[in-house]
Simulated assay, not measured.
Amino acid sequence: MAQAHLKIDLEALAANWRALDKLSADTVETGAVVKADGYGLGVARVARALADAGARQFYVAQAEEGVSLRDALGEGPEIFVFSGHMAGDSDMLRDARLIPLLNSIEQMTRHFETLPGHAFGVQIDSGMNRLGLEPAEWAAARGIVIPQGPRMVMSHLACADEPDDAMNARQLAAFREMTQGLDTTLSLSATGGILLGADYHFDATRPGIGLYGGLPFADAQPVAYLNAPVIQIRDVAAGETVGYGAAWLADQAARVATVQAGYADGLIRAMGDNAVVFADDTPCPLAGRVSMDMLTVDVTHLDTAPDTLQLLGAQQGIDDLADAAGTIGYEILTSLGARYRREYS
């Protein structure tokens, strides 16, 4: 079989949720961010596993994602939409019982006029300058909005993956000032904010990447295991080159394995020969450029020819592979392609 194999460990996913949940007080509601099709791993299976673990609040980027999530979860869990109430969203928000996190005066006007009485939340800008009402806007709107009973008032940290960054404390102070005296659910922290400690937890947290095995949650269990089949192994003489652009030169006789996976499968071309894959516990460096459907790997040092090589797993997580490509684990995870044979366990 030429198809690479992606195994998603749902038990590890649930264990990561429980571990992050334990980092905050029992009074804090720990949700789960499942946008981008459950960070590329399949939102239906991922969300149901998280719901079974205890998650009751879920977060998506846009209303269309929320509709699919509601189909997977059924009644009960709350589903929040980060992009708020966009034009054309009213029917989806109503029919799928989604909670938009309103980001602007325009969105508030749209929501209150088209869906009066429908649940909503509010996002305020504590300094990231991406989404949410700025302090002056919030000060003007607060007296009108709060009596209508928002389900949540939230903001988002820009530098939570860097615990010593002074931006964290500035945003915490701004969020406290903007929410002083409110009697509603407050939320500031995703994975990184949870790890900053209790001052950042408020009433609800929104872990995302840490659920899926990524930094900054260094204690996370790996969730994605990616193994790709070896198509062919060839002997390469000293002085010969491998792959497009003749980018890899054998300085001595070598054995090179051609592996069925490439950038069409989400393995970012930029990682080139900076990356390694694994034969059991033994690292094997890439030899040359990542192509659309194939990798070439130096397996000269192996005693036996491998049938498969592992790109993600216990030996190498998403952030390790990301480092080789000069990117972040989020991009590796959400780029995993549709050609993999997927297995959930």
Results as ranks from 00 to 15, higher is better:
Ala338Glu: 14
Gly181Leu: 11
Thr241Asn: 04
Cys159Trp: 05
Lys35Glu: 10
Ser126Phe: 09
Val236Cys: 09
Ala198His: 05
Leu312Thr: 12
Leu6Val: 07
Gln57His: 11
Leu336Arg: 15
Arg56Gln: 13
Pro285Arg: 02
Asp298Lys: 06
Arg142Met: 12
Ala141Asn: 07
Gly326Met: 12
Ala253Asn: 12
Asp219Cys: 06
Asp95His: 10
Gln315Ala: 12
Ala253Leu: 04
Ala15Trp: 03
Leu295Gly: 02
Gln221Ser: 12
Gly214Ser: 12
Gln252Val: 10
Ser335Glu: 03
His85Phe: 03
Ala270His: 05
Leu98His: 07
Ala314Val: 14
Tyr225Pro: 00
Val60Arg: 04
Glu65Gln: 11
Arg339His: 15
Val299Glu: 00
Ser345Arg: 11
Leu157Glu: 05
Gly213Pro: 10
Tyr263Lys: 05
Gly31Asp: 00
Gln180Pro: 00
Ala224Thr: 04
Leu23Thr: 13
Thr191Ile: 09
Ala63Val: 11
Pro163Phe: 08
Pro100Gly: 11
Val28Tyr: 03
Pro135Thr: 01
Ala15Gln: 15
Ile268Leu: 15
Arg234Ile: 13
Gly243Tyr: 09
Val277Asp: 10
Thr296Asn: 13
Phe120His: 07
Thr304Ile: 06
Ala72Ile: 05
Ser335Phe: 12
Gly266Val: 02
Tyr225Ser: 08
Ala250Met: 04
Ile124Ser: 03
Leu115Asn: 08
Met108Val: 14
Tyr200Cys: 03
Phe278Tyr: 15
Arg48Gln: 15
Lys35Asp: 09
Gly245Glu: 07
Gly84Ile: 04
Asp165Ala: 12
Leu115Val: 12
Gly54Asn: 06
Met86Pro: 01
Asn16Thr: 09
Ile194Pro: 11
Glu162Val: 13
